[in-house]
Amino acid sequence: MKLCKLIPVIAAAATLCGCGGQHMEQYQMFAMDTYVTLSGYCDRKTLEDAGEEVRRLEGLWSVNIESSDIARLNRDGSAELSAETAGLMSFTLSMSERTGGALDPTIYPVLREWGFTTDEHHVPDDDTIAELLENVGWEKVTLDGRSASLPVGTAVDAGAVAKGYAADIIAERLKSGGVTAGIVDLGGNVLTFGQKPDGSDWKVSVRDPFGDGAAGTLSVGECSVVTSGSYERYFEQDGVRYHHIIDPATGRPADTGLESVTVIAGESKLCDALSTALFVMGEDRAFDLWRESDDFEMIMITSDKRLLISEGIADRFEPDSKKKDYSAEVIRR
């Protein structure tokens, strides 16, 4: 037997045990106030270029970068926005309307007063909050094409939607660049696209807000998964815990008996916007909105350890069998 006859045997052996599979490349960076991981079946350069795009979007949207569109708008009261920023603002305002103001980009001055954007945390007094709330309200934002303006005292932050909006742009860019499959993960704002070479589902864990590890795992195709939770960004003062998801109606951390809301949908911007808004709305209002919609599914974890799973995603979510203190409930339409 000649060597060439051996090759098919070796190749078959290698393929049989999976060594012939493609390698998923990864690129990680700090941007948009989070840890970004871009993964794809492509070369590293492609991912690095996509990382540059994340950096560029951060430069347009960050309230902390003086030259950004958002910072200019807040400083000058009016600004000509880039196409991306105008798109982001327009989408954010449409979500404000859809969620009855539970998502509101003009909450920014209140969030800043609490110190969540500067890491100088403190509890503002009632008068300060009341005063700041007078300038809060998404209807105060005027957006005409790419021209935006704000009344005096009002300021915006796209932080609750920017990562999702960016993830959609990055995934689109990777796909049009010929990347067949991958994951855009902007600090837990996850978007999967394409299919793994072995045909299996993407596995995305849902954090356990009460402890280590995951409350469960989602097995999904091409989609986005975004969680808003009160369990990470918070501070304690006089024994009380204050988290970073501020209810625009009260100017205080949303107190709705929820620990986290995970939204699953086709678009990451929708997931990002809704996860924050649904957290603020609370269980009943959130499921009301879900019932009248057909573009998202969700998983809620309540403070009394109930796992509420909307029926459209129930068969793709497997609660962690080791976490026995949760009671899982599928919510029907």
């Binding site: 600090g187 837990g188 596995k203 995305v204 864990s205 849902v206 954090r207 280590d212 590890g213 995951a214």
Partner: peptide, 26 residues
């Protein structure tokens, strides 16, 4: 654990599994 990495953003520090159990944590 199986979920998200441990990240200290201000100090640019990340602790994560070399070979994650799941594809991502959302």
């Amino acid at each position: 654990s199986g979920g998200a990495p441990i990240i200290c953003l201000p100090n640019r520090l990340v602790i994560e599994y070399a070979d994650g159990r799941n594809d991502a944590a959302g």
